[in-house]
Design a protein around this nucleic acid. Structure first.
Length: 934
RNA sequence: GCCCGGGUGGUGGAAUCGGUAGACACGCAGGACUUAAAAUCCUGUGGCCAGCAAUGGCUGUGUGGGUUCAAGUCCCACCCCGGGUACCA
């Protein structure tokens, strides 16, 4: 081969890799392990676009680099294959989702293979395979068979709890539990089997209970909190309403504190940790019990500001609060009923939409202030949510802006107590904590933190309140009224749920006639004919949510073919957890929380050795598309070039808003913002007769904007096309060169030529124009070695800090310098190929073999940077040379030894002059010493 | 509103510990080769000013202050953009 023929090289090298089965990994205790994982994709029908591989390329670089560094690297890939799109496609076409999914997976694989990833495909997993979801079901059963012991602070087997009930009841049990009902051993023994199971459901980590769920009528299913945003479903943006339903949930709330604490020990970005902290929403405060004037009941409130208790103007309950009907007076009864009806008819979205509209209603009841004995009116209002805290608050207008607004709304509350010294709260509440209290009895003169503690002490002493930590995190709704998901391995006997015995797993998805709910609104699985456990007992008909399979998949890669366990102890003990995890930040409050939760449960139960699934997490940014639009005059077949549009509109007395419609043009028809007019006409028959009004250069300019890549915007760039045109190495280098890995940026093919030129330049160091191989075994010059070793050092540092874009720049500089030096020695170029290999695997493998490298370059050793060749290392201080300031980074290589010595001498003179003074740094600017830092 | 990021040439972005701001690349301009084009190579390229020129001067990292011999980098205030979250008591 005398000319660079990328396609041929790729083909040859691919064949070589697959013949040698080069990426297969095994447990190997002689080498340290390193586990590099990508968040596995959902195989959608649209295939990969150029944005998807960004993270995969980065993780591939890391895993190849770690291999060269002597690690045994696990780098697998699989598919998150259950999901909504395949099911919706099935509903429309009747095509079984398994078939669609299989087809999409094959397409993904084909696309991935073109980019030269080092995945060990023998470990592939698919969440929709029954051999895989057998273990998803098995883990669900472990959750079902466990409870959370607050004393030992971990999950424990439910049998141990039952054994305890038999002996002592639940009196000394501290559990994370749905109800507080207490019973003795005798009580327990008297319960029927069905009653016992009902009690146990309150303890199980996977449980069936009536709970408020986010119900999406359009999708016909319940959704978890992270699947809802702004009152709309994340998938499809359909309205979501609150509905009380009997639902499977998982008790993630038991792990709130540990999920929070665990963040301290892992290397994730601040923003990611922050999102999780935010979602868990820890707040410290107190419960306070308020007595009522004419009832025995007490109102329990949660507050983070017990210090403001002397400023209470009223109590406010959520309209759904259980005491509302009991305490409402006869006079207020009608008003309260009307108000309750009004709020219940509003959806969650409407309710939060009019934050500004204050409303509420007096109940006629009065509470008693625990310290002053004053009567406090009790209201209901929809700004209080039944689902948070106790669904009731003590309203302190001087210290909380919502309470302030509420008090201003009711004339009878306008005259409230201000508990803050020297602060005017007549117009707005004081939410600062840097103030002192006044009008507050025993809290007078204390600052806020002191007063909070003092008040809680007093409440606890009097037995009318206690310190309390609240979390915003909700238990995760687990059941989905859908077909294409893992069946929940539960059957019902006398309406009591029982887990399937392990030996009966997997419970496979039954075949059904239609992928729709039944006529009476049951989930699709209810259509299955004769689908019963032992032919007798009904199975659960909801399926698991999308995140079930992805909550533990990283364990399965360790031992994917195991039929006896989800992974063997040997594999688990060797691979432990993920060292390097990469994926999108959109999973911050979904997947990344659930997979930490499941890992912690498995850890508590002794199945896995690590409590945190991923030690290091990196979020790759999104690659956006550049979409192009053509301005078309509404209702006519005239299009106007964007740069003359304004003029045109003015001449014809039109304006953009009313008379112009922008139509998308395919990104392939646009180059440098200019539209290929003929291409546009033939692209879509509807556009065949369009007239294009061009600018004076006879060009038609389009309007461009950066948007998410999507089919409907015609801005999708397919990696296959880029690889076909430039080669996989160039594609990989260019994606990295675009910018820092975490950054989102638009795909712009403009710059790819620079990378392409670099590859050809590299090639020309190995072959001349006549195709002769130029590499010799001659000894390289010292200058040439210097260039190489500087490059080694820089690449090493930059890969470690994941600065892949600067790595590419370093390669370009290095190759430029070496070709200027006419370098053709194998001793220099072979190490360079090794450095470059993680980024450009094909060409480096090819050239390595041409240079007589043995085996695959993947088994080479990452070169060591010889410090003696890095001149800049011999200087500790920034020094000036020839009037220019030099630091380690920009020390000139062309400097003669004499010049260096002269400068060093100069420094020594200065040092002598300053004899006796300890120095850290001598500062030279433009040849003049300006300071000595001691 | 609150919590995180981030604002650097025409563009993407470098500057790792406070030490020559703008690496590298794109684009653009000029040149070489060519009948021509493509490809390739070379030179220049933040802005302003002076000079035939080599070069020199001033200015410059969202805005305004501050710390420092020295600030893109640290501190304070503000503006703008992106993300998360929201009647969470």
């Amino acid at each position: 081969m005398n000319e660079l023929n990328i396609a041929q090289i790729e083909q040859e090298i691919k064949a070589f890799w697959s013949k040698e089965d080069i990426y297969r990994v095994h447990e190997d205790s002689s080498k340290p392990k390193y586990y590099v994982l990508d968040m596995f994709p959902y195989p959608s029908g649209a295939g990969l676009h150029v944005g998807h591989p960004l993270g995969y390329i980065a993780s591939d670089i890391v895993s190849r680099y770690k291999r060269l560094k002597g690690f045994n690297v696990l780098h697998p890939m699989g598919y998150d294959a259950f999901g909504l799109p395949a099911e919706q496609y099935a509903i429309q076409t009747g095509q079984h989702p398994a078939i669609t999914t299989q087809k999409n997976i094959l397409h993904y694989r084909e696309q991935l293979d073109k980019i030269g990833f080092s995945y060990d495909w023998s470990r592939e997993v698919r969440t929709c395979d029954s051999s895989y979801y057998k273990w998803t079901q098995w883990i669900f059963i472990q959750l079902f068979n466990s409870w959370y012991n607050n004393k030992s602070n971990k999950a424990e087997p439910i049998e141990e709890l039952i054994a305890h009930f038999e002996i002592k009841g639940n009196i000394d049990i501290k559990a994370h539990c749905s109800t507080q009902e207490t019973f003795s051993a005798a009580d327990w023994k008297q319960k029927t089997e069905s009653e016992k199971q009902q009690v146990l459901l309150n303890y199980r980590l996977a449980y069936l209970a009536n709970s408020w769920v986010n119900w999406c009528p359009a999708l016909g299913t319940a959704l978890a909190n992270d699947e809802v945003k702004d009152g709309l479903s994340v998938r499809g943006s359909h309205p979501v309403e609150q509905r009380l339903m009997k639902q499977w949930s998982t008790r993630i709330t038991a792990y709130a504190e540990r999920l929070l604490q665990g963040l301290e020990s892992i290397d994730w970005s601040d923003s990611m940790k922050d999102s999780q902290r935010n979602w868990i929403g820890k707040s410290e405060g107190a419960y306070i019990h308020f007595s009522l004037k004419t009832f025995k009941h007490k109102i329990k409130v949660f507050t983070t500001r017990p210090d403001t208790i002397f400023g209470v103007a009223c109590m406010v309950l959520a309209p759904e609060h259980e005491l509302v009907d009991t305490i409402t007076s006869i006079e207020q009864s009608e008003a309260v009923q009307i108000y309750k009806k009004k709020t219940s008819s509003k959806s969650e979205r409407d309710r939060s939409a009019d934050v500004k509209n204050i409303s509420g209603c007096f109940t006629g009841a009065y509470a008693i202030h625990p310290f002053t004995g004053k009567e406090i009116p009790v209201y209901i209002a929809d700004y209080i949510l039944a689902s948070y805290g106790t669904g009731a608050v003590m309203a302190v207008p001087s210290g909380d802006s919502r309470d302030h607004r509420f008090a201003q709304h009711f004339p009878e509350l306008a005259d409230f107590v201000n508990v803050f010294e020297g602060v005017d709260v007549s117009l707005s509440a004081c939410e600062s904590k840097d103030v002192k209290l006044t009008h507050s009895g025993f809290l007078n003169g204390l600052n806020v933190p002191e007063a909070i503690n003092r008040c809680i002490e007093e409440l606890e002493k009097r037995g009318i309140g206690e310190r309390k930590i609240n979390y915003r995190l909700r238990d995760a709704v687990f059941g989905r009224q859908r077909y294409w998901g893992e069946p929940i391995p539960i059957y019902y006997k006398n309406e009591v749920p029982y887990a399937l015995p392990e030996s009966e797993l997997p419970l496979t998805l039954p075949e059904i006639d239609k992928f729709l709910p039944t006529e009476d609104g049951e989930p699709p699985l209810a259509r299955a004919v004769d689908w019963k456990y032992q032919g007798l007992y009904e199975y659960e008909t909801t399926t698991m949510p999308g995140w079930a399979g992805s909550s533990w998949y990283f364990f399965r890669y360790m031992d994917p073919k195991n039929q006896k366990e989800f992974a063997s102890n040997v594999a688990l003990a060797y691979w432990k957890n993920i060292d390097f995890y990469i994926g999108g930040s959109e999973h911050a409050t979904g997947h990344l929380l659930y997979f930490r939760f499941w890992t912690k449960v498995l850890y508590d139960l002794g199945f896995v050795p690590c409590e945190e699934p991923a030690q290091r997490l990196v979020n790759q940014g999104m690659i956006q598309g550049i979409s192009s639009q053509v301005a078309r005059i509404k209702g006519r077949s005239i299009c106007v070039s964007n740069d003359v549009l304004e003029n045109y509109l003015e001449q014809h007395g039109m304006n953009e808003k009313d008379d112009v419609q922008f139509i998308y043009a395919d990104i392939r028809l646009v180059h440098h913002q200019k539209l290929d007019v003929e291409g546009m006409r033939s692209w879509n028959p509807e556009y065949a007769t369009l007239q294009f009004i061009c600018n004076e250069n006879r060009e038609f300019v389009v309007r461009q904007m950066v948007e998410k890549m999507s089919k409907s915007k015609y801005n999708v760039v397919n990696p296959d096309e880029v690889v076909a045109e430039y080669g996989a190495d160039c594609f990989r280098l260019y994606e990295m060169f675009l910018g820092p890995i975490e950054l989102s940026k638009p795909w712009d093919t403009q710059g790819i030529d620079g990378v392409s030129r670099f590859i050809r330049k590299l090639w020309r160091m190995f072959f001349n124009e006549q195709g002769q191989f130029l590499i010799t075994t001659d000894k390289p010059s010292r200058d040439t070695l210097k260039v190489l070793h500087r490059c080694i050092k820089k690449i090493n540092e930059d890969i470690e800090r994941l600065s892949f874009n600067t790595c590419v720049s370093t390669f370009m500089i290095c190759v430029n310098e070496l070709s200027t030096l006419k370098c053709n020695q194998a001793e220099v170029l072979k190490p360079l190929l090794v450095l470059l290999h993680p980024f450009a695997p094909f060409i480096t493998e090819y050239l390595w073999q041409r240079c007589g490298g043995s085996g695959s370059i993947l088994h080479a050793t990452f070169p060591f940077a010889d410090g003696s060749l890095l001149v800049e290392n011999s200087f500790e201080y920034p020094i000036s040379i020839n009037g220019k300031m030099r630091t380690k980074a920009n020390f000139p290589l062309d400097l003669s030894q004499a010049e260096i010595e002269r400068e060093v001498l100069k420094m020594e003179v200065v040092q002598k002059w300053l004899e006796g003074k300890p120095m850290k740094k001598i500062i030279f600017v433009k040849g003049r010493m300006i300071n000595v830092v001691t």
